[in-house]
């Protein structure tokens, strides 16, 4: 029965995968093109910047692919289409349905990351500091980050109403991206200590730094144990809040 829920999402997602990837990775790829290729070529930016940029771009891609994969359909399902009720008729506990959505979102986030990595590398050319020796660690960080943001997607998807989607993107997603150490490493924020401390509330920071620890370990990054611990804690927090919000919305 859980398998059937998964199969349904696999069926729907795989049909829409190209559009999904396009939608969620276009912005990071464009950013990569401008800041990772054009600006260095024009000499405005040091070529070394690509080493700091790549992991962050991956982080953003996987985080926001995950959030969107879970939150957007869920807002619709709870809202105007009421399709959530089709799923809620299934004889499984409510939290199972939510969990399945999070897992499906995680997979989609990982797919987005695996898609962006070669594309970004292609755009930017050889990247100083890129080290794929620990690809297992890359996968672990990717999965952990995608899970954390899928759980965040569950929370957002259950909490917000249809008309608030625009607001959500403007007020939550955009600031998260810009202040998520995606385009610059956290360590380098030592130049502005106040900002360095303030951004620590942003879960994306830990995803970006996790990718830096895995992909460019020689370059400055937040320590791996800290990042891992933070991502686990964030996942637990969002999952708890998300499940509770989902349950409340599903059974009034």
């Amino acid at each position: 029965m859980f398998g059937a829920l998964v199969r349904r999402d696999v069926h729907v997602v795989s049909r829409e995968l190209p559009f999904f990837l396009l939608r969620t990775t276009l912005q990071p790829i464009m950013f990569t093109t401008v800041f990772g290729y054009l600006l260095p070529k024009m000499g405005f930016v040091n070529q070394d910047y690509t080493g700091a940029l790549l992991p962050g771009i991956l982080g953003v891609s996987l985080a926001f692919a995950s959030v969107q994969a879970v939150a957007l359909p869920m807002v619709a399902d709870f809202g105007w289409t009421r399709e959530i009720e089709d799923r809620l008729l299934a004889p499984v506990p409510t939290w199972v349905i939510a969990l399945e959505k999070v897992l499906a979102g995680t997979v989609q986030g990982v797919i987005a990351a695996l898609f962006v990595l070669p594309v970004a590398r292609l755009i930017m050319g050889p990247i100083p500091g890129l080290d794929l020796a620990h690809f297992g660690l890359v996968i672990v960080m990717t999965v952990l980050g995608a899970f954390a943001f899928s759980a965040f997607g569950l929370l957002l998807g259950s909490a917000i109403k249809g008309e608030q989607i625009g607001l959500m993107f403007g007020l939550i997603v955009a600031p998260m991206i810009f202040f998520g150490c995606a385009y610059y490493p956290w360590k380098a924020l030592a130049a502005t200590p106040l900002v360095q401390v303030l951004v620590l509330v942003n879960p994306l920071v830990y995803v970006s730094e996790g990718m830096r620890a895995a992909l460019t370990p020689a370059l400055p990054h937040m320590s791996l144990p800290v990042v891992t611990g933070a991502l686990v804690a964030i996942s637990a927090l969002f999952m708890t809040l998300g499940l509770r919000t989902f349950e409340k919305r599903a059974v009034t």
């Binding site: 029965m1 059937a4 349904r8 069926h11 729907v12 089709d86 008729l89 299934a90 004889p91 499984v92």
Partner: peptide, 15 residues
């Protein structure tokens, strides 16, 4: 997201 018959088949699978 599913066709008519798929709605029934998946729903049956949920059970």
């Amino acid at each position: 997201q599913l066709t008519v018959i798929q709605n029934l088949l998946f729903h049956a699978a949920y059970f």
